[in-house]
Structures are given as structure tokens and as C-alpha cells.
Design a protein around this nucleic acid. Sequence first.
DNA 1: GTGGTCTAGACCACT
DNA 2: GTGGTCTAGACCACC
Lengths: 122, 122, 122, 122
Amino acid sequence: MKFDSNLPIYLQIMEEIKRLIVIGSYVPAQKIPSVRDLAIDFGVNPNTVQRALSELEREGLLNSERTSGRYISDDEQLIQQLKQKMIIQKTDQYLVEVKHYGCDDTTIIESIKERLADGKFN
Amino acid sequence: MKFDSNLPIYLQIMEEIKRLIVIGSYVPAQKIPSVRDLAIDFGVNPNTVQRALSELEREGLLNSERTSGRYISDDEQLIQQLKQKMIIQKTDQYLVEVKHYGCDDTTIIESIKERLADGKFN
Amino acid sequence: MKFDSNLPIYLQIMEEIKRLIVIGSYVPAQKIPSVRDLAIDFGVNPNTVQRALSELEREGLLNSERTSGRYISDDEQLIQQLKQKMIIQKTDQYLVEVKHYGCDDTTIIESIKERLADGKFN
Amino acid sequence: MKFDSNLPIYLQIMEEIKRLIVIGSYVPAQKIPSVRDLAIDFGVNPNTVQRALSELEREGLLNSERTSGRYISDDEQLIQQLKQKMIIQKTDQYLVEVKHYGCDDTTIIESIKERLADGKFN
DNA sequence: GTGGTCTAGACCACT
DNA sequence: GTGGTCTAGACCACC
């Protein structure tokens, strides 16, 4: 995975894991790979993965069972909320920014439709 | 101004200055405040402002006239393109991300309309 | 049983067994359950129980009779001392800590009475 | 400082700093020593101190001002609550434990008075 | 010099 | 082999 050097890697890993949860690659209660394996996958130091996972655990998305491994939360509701929350968060951030640049509602929607029409995003 | 501690401050200052240009607070060929004054405005070290301005100069948006100070580019075309470029860039980044989260086109447009309807962004 | 993840489990098991002795759930010379059974009770690996028991043996509270199993010490005096020793140890540790936080004697006694009055501890 | 090897060092450092706040060695809004200096004081790796301080920051007891250093929270109320909270926490934990060992209220209070009378804790 | 992040590599408790 | 902690040492952004 390629990381943006302007954002801490552990945050980017958190994002990626959230994404994997949201799109269903990780399902509730599923065991995730070990810290060491994820570190290899991400091409990153185990400590960095550890930090990302600890933060996710603090957010309640992961549980760690001491010696057996880490698991996606089995709180299906929480997991389902996650998708909506992530989308809304990204959308709101986008809207704040473009409004900040002086766009009005119709311009925004036009822009979106236009860019989607290009079909580059599939 | 409040900065996101996870992103280099000089990048955030660059963004802000671009924004001021786009919304017309800075017009082509206008002289901008001194590094020192901007540093005070932004509540930031002059070195940090310096770096942001240098980068903007590299992008052609600013010219520094040695003794007299720094000016917004007088290339009106460039300035005019800026708004569109910024919007498109932000839009595309947004679209990439939400597509990455498994959203399809209609969902995206619905989301946008929904959030705009809230009216929180005006 | 719930363990505090910040303290080695074998220590917490030692504590619990001492507690069972002190409150009379285990009486002198009584045979205690097998490592395997204790491990199941505690929801823990047999090795961990093993370590706890070995330490207790070193302290003279347990004897292992090779083939027939492990027994609470028959040294009734030792067992009787245990309760006092545990109480004193915990009390002293508590006093050291709160004194360390700047409490004087009367404050301490007031605190204790106040918390006991709440009746949450019965 | 001597650390108990059975408890993570960063937790013990957090405790110690809270203690320093409670007894007034650190006052609200005061700047605390740098991570590096504290690391030397505690005889510990800077990363370990960093972790302790980050956790305290998350608890709102500390603020870090990017490049100038870290400061005790200026929320005097929060700081004042801390002392009570720490004492109550320790007292309750003590009471739970000794009750768990079968002590009744009068025994507890007698124990406390007796140990205090020894005068070893001053 | 300050906080923050990251790496590399070690050790521990526990399975 | 698993999560968790710790060390030593580096680099970065910022002052």
C-alpha cells in the first residue's frame, strides 16, 4: 500500500481498516491478521500497525483477545453505523471545503455529475 | 486560524492563500502582506509562512519582487483557472474516496443533496 | 473470572487462591482441584495455573504430593496468619499511597468511613 | 524512580505525574519538562514518557503546544477534581479488596487506626 | 530544542 | 505464534 507522506501512517492504516470493514472485507467478529502479518502486508513496522489497531480498539471497532488475536467487533450495529458515518464525514468535509471556495449548491451538484460522467472512477 | 495538527502547517497555509485568491480576497497583481504580518495573522512562525509562499511561487501564483514585497500573479488566466482546478481536485479526491467505500453514483448524489438540504453549510 | 490485563495473570490467580484460603473456601490439608480443572475454572491456560501454584508452593501455602495432587498446607498457624498478613499488606500499601497523595490521618479515616457509609461494598 | 516491574512503566509514570499535580508540585497551566528531560529524570526511554503524556493529554490533564512544550491543563476545576477522584478510587479499591477477604467495617477501621498509630507512614 | 512519528529489534506473558 | 511493552536511535515540522 502507498501512503501519503503528509499524514501519519498509523492514521492511514486506521482508515484502510475501517474501509475494509465498511466494504465487508472484514465482517463482524472475524479474526484479523496478526500485527506482524499486517505489518508485512502494509510494508510497515509492527509498532506502527500496533498503534493503529490500539486506536481502533479504543474506538470499539476491534477487540483484542490477549493471546489468540484481534477480532472485528461483534457489535453489528456499530459496524453498520460506521459506513454511514464515514460517508457523511467525508461528504461534509468536502462540502465545507468547496463552499469555502465560494461554490453554491447547484454548482456543486453539477460538478459532481460532470466528474462522474467522465467515468474515471469505476 | 485553527490548524489540523496532522497535516503540515505550511500546506494548510498554502491552501488558505489559494482560497483567498479564488474567492477574490486577493486579486491579480495585488501586493500581499509581509511574511512577518502573515505570520502574525496565522499565529505561526515566519519560517512556516516563508515556506508556504515559496511553494506558491514555484506554482506561479506569486511573484516576489525583491525589495518591494510579494505580489499575486498578474496572469489573470492562471488565476481564473485556479478556482476550477481546486474544485475539480477536491471533487475528484472526494469521489475516489467514497467510491473506494463502495458508493455508487446515485448514492453519492443522494448523499450530497441530503447533506446540502440540511443547510448547515451556509 | 475477570483479569486486569495490566497485571500478570498468574499473580492474580495467586491472589484469588489466597483469598479462597483466607475466607475458608479452602481449609488446611484440603485437596485442591487439578491444574487442569482450575485452568478451566479460571478460563486460563494450564501453564498459567501451574505457575501460580508453584509460587504458592514456594510460599509454603501449598504442598504437592506427587501422585495424588496438591493440598493446602496443614500448618494451621501459617494459614491463620495469612489473613492478617494479607490485610496488613493491603492496608499498608493503601496508606503509603494516600499519604503519598498528601492525605493526613484524619482525612484518611474520614474518607474510609464516608465510603463505607455508602454501603456499596456489601 | 523505582518502577514495579509488574505494571507497565507508562502507567506508573502517569500515576506519578497525577500525583505531582495533586500535591501541587505541578500547578495548572504550568509548563512541564520536555519529554527528553522527563525521560532522563525517570531513567526511561523518551518514547515511554511520550506514551504516558499522550494518555494524560487524552484525559485532558495536559495540553501540548506543538513546538513550545507541554502544559498542565488550566482547567482548575478538573485539577481539583483529580485529587478527590484519586483518593476515592484508591480507597474504594482498598475497601473492595479487604471486604473480599471477609473484613467487616469495624475491623477495617481498627486496622487502619492501628497501622496509622505505628507512625511508619510519615 | 520541542513534540510527534517511525523503525528495528528485543523481551514478556500467555496459548 | 500472539498482543503488549520497551529501548535506542532516527527523522520531521516547527520555533
